[in-house]
Simulated scan of single mutants.
Amino acid sequence: MAVDARIAVLPAGQQAVEIREVTLDVVGPYEVVVRQKAFGVCHSQLDRIYDPSRTESMLLGHESIGTVVAVGDQVRHVVPGDEVLTTWIPRTPLDGRPPEPARIAFPDGDLARTHNTFTWGTHAVVDEQYVVKTPEDTPLDLGSIIGCALMTGAGAVMNSAEVRAGQSVAVWGAGGVGLCAIAGAAILGASPVVAVDVDDDKLKLAEQFGATDVVNAKKTDPVAAIRALTPHDDGTRGVDYAFDCTGIGANIPVSLASVRPGVRGAGIRGGADVLVGIPRVPFQLDSMDLLNGEKSLLGCVGGSCDPVRDFETFVEWTRDGRFDPSALVTDRFALDELNNAVEALHEGRVRGRAVVELEG
């Protein structure tokens, strides 16, 4: 089945995407062609765009909602006409077949690749491992950001840390992923839930998503502020869990310092700092804070999520009003405005999540 598509390509040596026309007429045995309805613009894609070491053209994006228009002959879990969610975490990673990274050959001979999947365009050709059937009553806004922002932020709280009601949480970085972590912590009954950022507008939005307290790290010592908010009966101060969504290596020892220490001889271990944002450069820690406080540093990829299981949970949160995806989508763009969306994100002008809408 031939499908005419417009695909965003990041050419080698450039920092602006080009929208190119291509006919998709060959589907591999495990591939799915998805006609996009909306997709998110994730901060992690900026690392690809501004990577000076990149030597080949790339396809970008990894969260979307759309409709299947064609499938390979080995695809069994979706058929043309199904509404689906695209993500970058494999649906069944233990089935013995690693998913194939997507690639598109264009008429001019350029071959564009991706590390896993792509979503920036009217259509995407993705390995069936990265496609999940859309749960019933999934709104467009939720579908556009569930495959990365919500999965990564809320999943870190729900899966990686397994936060329980009454435990204290600090979220460092109140962008799209951080807001989802804040929402997840609030939904799970954490208290207090402290949002830390350097932008008052983002902190105001964090309160809408369930932050009980906000700290502007430009205006006050954030560690001291968090400790003041989190006294414990054992005499310690600090949060049970910090979620560092900044991706800034220099911030990690600071977020670790906001975590409560353990109590020697009492069998009480310290809290944990969860790395949600991706630090792109090596970082240093205060090893004595980690050791003497009996604290933990946890890595987290994609919120430790199982897409099939967890996407249904996130949709339930939306059905019953606990999560409002339309409040998270603060900036909306058309496909031809994609570079404007990237620029706004790069300059810090996107308070929540930027989304490109192709159809309602």
Rank of each mutant, 00 (worst) to 15 (best):
D127S: 07
V75I: 05
T55F: 03
D306I: 03
Q167D: 15
A341R: 13
G277E: 02
P107A: 14
R349L: 10
C245G: 07
A225P: 02
I187R: 01
T220W: 11
S160N: 15
L46W: 09
L111Y: 04
W317F: 13
A183S: 14
I145Q: 00
L290K: 05
V125D: 09
Q284M: 14
E83I: 02
R227T: 04
L297Y: 06
P135H: 08
V263D: 07
A112K: 11
G28C: 07
G302N: 00
N292A: 15
L256G: 11
R260N: 10
H62W: 06
A70T: 03
D95Y: 07
Y241I: 00
S144Y: 05
R227S: 03
V214M: 06
R227P: 02
R351K: 15
R164N: 14
Y50C: 02
G72C: 07
T134H: 06
A38W: 09
I268Y: 10
A211W: 10
I187T: 03
A12F: 12
C245R: 01
E21I: 08
D240V: 08
D200S: 10
K218G: 13
M158E: 09
A12V: 12
T330A: 06
V281N: 13
P52T: 15
I226H: 08
R351F: 14
H43W: 11
T212P: 03
A174H: 04
H43M: 11
P98H: 03
P29M: 09
S255G: 11
R103Q: 15
P101G: 06
N339H: 07
A257R: 10
L335T: 02
C42R: 06
A242D: 04
Q45K: 13
S64L: 13
V215R: 11
V22W: 07
G210D: 04
N116C: 11
D127F: 04
K219L: 12
A257P: 08
V27I: 15
E312K: 14
Q284W: 08
I104H: 11
G235Y: 01
V355G: 08
G360S: 14
R103F: 13
G303S: 07
V163S: 09
D4Q: 14
L59I: 02
K204N: 12
V196N: 10
T220G: 10
S160C: 15
R237K: 09
E136S: 14
T220C: 10
D221C: 05
G249Y: 09
G184M: 01
V276I: 10
A70L: 05
G173E: 12
Y241A: 01
W172A: 01
E18L: 10
G173W: 10
D73Y: 05
V132P: 00
P98G: 02
A250P: 09
S296N: 13
A228I: 00
R91H: 00
L140I: 05
R332D: 00
R91E: 00
N159M: 05
V196C: 08
C42M: 06
P135E: 07
R353Y: 12
V41H: 03
P139C: 00
G166Y: 06
L285Q: 05
A5V: 03
K202H: 10
N159S: 02
G147W: 06
G66S: 02
V196M: 08
V169H: 01
S168N: 02
